[in-house]
Design a protein around this nucleic acid. Structure first.
Length: 122
DNA sequence: ATGGTGACGTCGG
DNA sequence: GCCGACGCCACCA
């Protein structure tokens, strides 16, 4: 995290930077074979009501291959962000590579493999 | 500046 | 349990 962090927004210097940075930090920490939700990340960052911003952060994460954005799904375990990947099946395939079963754009056994940064990372 | 939109989530009906 | 409305806040036209 001490690495040179590229500003995401046109006008960096806002808290947004810190927020985005934290989002990336958390997402990178998601263990392989586990998934988390936008809301959980938002809560962990103290912005529980701004889950959308996490999604927006993921949009920026688009430029960061190191960010396993495929491990972030919505609260139902649905791959809502699959459309933002290069190909339609890319997100699902990435998950399946990690032994995460996906059926009909939904993570199977989601509750079991759910990784909560608040309780796991804290 | 203003209004519409969105990788979300919660609440009321 | 499904559906609509609202909140939240950055971004874009």
């Amino acid at each position: 995290m001490t690495n040179n962090f590229k500003p995401i927004t046109t006008n960096s210097k806002l808290k947004t930077d810190n927020f985005f940075e934290n989002v990336y930090e958390v997402v990178k920490l998601i263990p392989k074979g586990r998934v988390t939700s936008y809301g959980a990340i938002a809560i962990y960052l103290g912005a529980a009501r701004s889950a959308r911003m996490v999604g927006w952060a993921m949009n920026n994460a688009h430029a960061m291959p190191e960010i396993p954005a495929h491990r972030v799904v919505n609260r139902e375990g649905v791959l809502t962000g699959k459309l933002h990947f290069g190909t339609l099946n890319e997100m699902q395939e990435l998950l399946e590579k990690e032994n995460i079963k996906v059926l009909n754009d939904k993570v199977e056994n989601f509750k079991n493999i759910f990784w909560d940064p608040v309780s796991e990372l804290l």
